[in-house]
Design a protein around this nucleic acid. Sequence first.
RNA 1: GGCGCCGUACCCAAGUGGUAAGGGAGCAGUCUGCAAAACUGCGAUGCAGCGGUUCGAACCCGCUCGGCGCCUCCA
Length: 494
Amino acid sequence: MSRLTLFNTLTGRQEVFEPIEPKHVRMYVCGVTVYDYCHIGHARSALVFDVLRRYLEHSGYAVTFIKNFTDVDDKIIKRANEQGVNCDVITKKFIQAYHEDMTKLGIRAATEEPKATEHIAVIVQLTERLINKGLAYVVDGDVYFEVAKYPEYGRLSKRRLEDLQVGARVDVNERKHRPMDFALWKNSKPGEPAWESPWGLGRPGWHIECSAMSIRHLGETFDIHGGGMDLIFPHHENEIAQSCGATGKEFARYWVHNGFVQINKEKMSKSLGNFFTIREIFEKSEWSEEVTGEILRYFLLSTHYHGPLDFSDQGLREAKNALNGFYDLFQRLDESEAGATVDKELSGVIERCRGTFHSRMDDDLNTPEALAAFQGMKNDVNKLLGQGVSTSARKTVRKEFRSLGETLGLFQLDTWQFRPVVVPIGQVGETGAALPIGVTRSGLADAEIEELLRERNQSRRRKDFKRADEIRTLLANQGILIEDKPDGTTRWKR
RNA sequence: GGCGCCGUACCCAAGUGGUAAGGGAGCAGUCUGCAAAACUGCGAUGCAGCGGUUCGAACCCGCUCGGCGCCUCCA
């Protein structure tokens, strides 16, 4: 087991993580409201918790990971009305889009991905429980949680009720006892999705669904609850009030929140219109889907999850250049060579990287430091490679990058080549159709490249460097980079 | 009005009491027919500013300046 520590928003401190069950972690993360495509901010949040989940598993825990879809909500209804379709047309479409985007990013599906609309009965039960306890009240088919009845309200977001009421916008809903009270159940208007309930036809409020689904899938008390910083208040504060109010037990023990993705130091958001969707970035990328996914992961993990992160093309380019170095090394590791003079030193290098990686990740998932550990191993291996490393030791190194990198979703590709689709010369442009993603640079088939390199090396042997350089230029124009090795052969990459 | 975050080299970014990781870009060198890659070297006497605590502070305390977030839906 690891000695993982996590920054817990609830206590405001970094704490040693100890799950309720020794070898089993139960975590819940607030997913997305499915009314539009996801942007990079959603990607960051999803990635952070994917990495947390993977690292816990890597550390020997079994993890039950629940991530919900909010599929009943004002914004969804609005969007459906605009398009003159049923809500489930909208939600189905964007749930599918979500899965597509996450797959491209290498983010694994959660153990369960429950939907609010499939938990109406549980939501109703929980609401009844709160009414019976005197913590909620019914007004004309609406049900509200009475915040004043939960004395600990504000303990997550460190706010006092009095402070909130001063500057907060006055709620126009006069049916509430107090402005801070929030809806558990909403009386539905005609044309809105509605379910039978003891209070008439209606639909659930936003916060109650997460309490209901997390309790349903993980129990009344579980280990980790996560989401973006913006959910701390009021969403998570309300979840705590509802859940603890209903069960009388602690809800989640560790609250983990990720920082925002920003554009020019401003929060990326729909209202500001300064957001990039995940699919837009993949579409615009000049690299293949796999490579683009890895660039994005490297970029997003190069900043600690708790802080803000400014999204930029330059940042992406730097991530790509950093990754180039790793895959250049992997290519050299694939080449075989006799000699094993420094194999022993190499195992020391691996051990050191492994130790650093774990201690840095244990420290509140310090992924920037973890990446630095990989850089260190890369540099050390590069130095040793010139001194004689056996083929089996090379394989061991590559395997180590792969297994440690798996936690971050990095270093899993066989080749860092920008060509999921090879379009032999002559075929490009004939169809006139737009090229698939990743082949914007077109390319030559492997055999054609090998043939040209054969000719070039013959030229070099004849000292016909003019012809040799012509071929280099020709290949470069097709996006092929070549590197001459000391033994007279040439390696190439796209 | 309340609560909170951030300010480290050209850029990105760790470090949060013991004398500034790492990456990207740049420059110089080794190697090379040339190139690429790799390797070597160079690069903040200083961590927004000013005070204070301390043997010692980027890290703790106070004030100031600048940027941002939440309090309304938001990852």
